[in-house]
Amino acid sequence: MAKRIDVSDLNIYYGSFLAVADVSMTIEPRTVTALIGPSGCGKSTFLRTLNRMHEVIPGARAEGKVVMDGVDMYASDVDPVAVRRHVGMVFQRPNPFPTMSIAENVLAGVRLNNKRISKGDAQDLVERSLQGANLWNEVKDRLDRPGSGLSGGQQQRLCIARAIAVRPQVLLMDEPCSALDPISTLAIEDLIAELKNDYTIVIVTHNMQQAARVSDRTGFFNIAGTGKPGRLIEIDDTTTIFSSPHEQATEDYISGRFG
């Protein structure tokens, strides 16, 4: 069910301000693509255009093509709500619904999609999703407790369980570990390696070691200066990017000479 995404000539705007210019890339199915770059370079903005979450900000829009499995997600007859049902997202800060129990959180997406689900199926799905997110053993005895009572790392894995419960084709992660301690980060990174077998994953990270550890391909975004749009400088196999990048800017960034 993992899908390939082709982005071509994508320009992203906030009102009249061009935030990200001219991005083209191909994201292969069942791979992890990491997006790295300095703050404000537009990598998160770009990520949010992949499930049309970008446009929930007033005035924000994108021009260009994002084709998933032959369908242009920005075609006029495409419903952004439907896009988001196929492209799941995990955010920077864990955001389980505070008014729902752990089990309800996992089922939130399924309930939204207006599917009637029997009690047994629901229990199976909760168990399967939580196991998929490596969280089952830690929470199986307290599925009816609020999700907000878990630790930050557990909450983030709960959010991943919630995202994969609807069986998306692509999973977007926006700095999923930036609010977590190293142990929880490790748990998430292990999880990403497992999820890769079933999903296409795009992850934005500030942490270059993390990009090197988890990803197959790495894209480097950069910005020429304040007020200028962010651009994709290069994207290549992770090993290439971290050993012999083609662009000088990439080399400077990953060797810590700036940013």
């Binding site: 979450m53 929930v56 896009v83 988001r84 955010f91 955001n95 959010c159 995202a163």
Partner: peptide
Amino acid sequence: LHEEAALALGATRLEVIRTA
């Protein structure tokens, strides 16, 4: 964050209001 969590799961505006 909660509204975006609902949106990212494919919630319509009504569903965002109901879940978040």
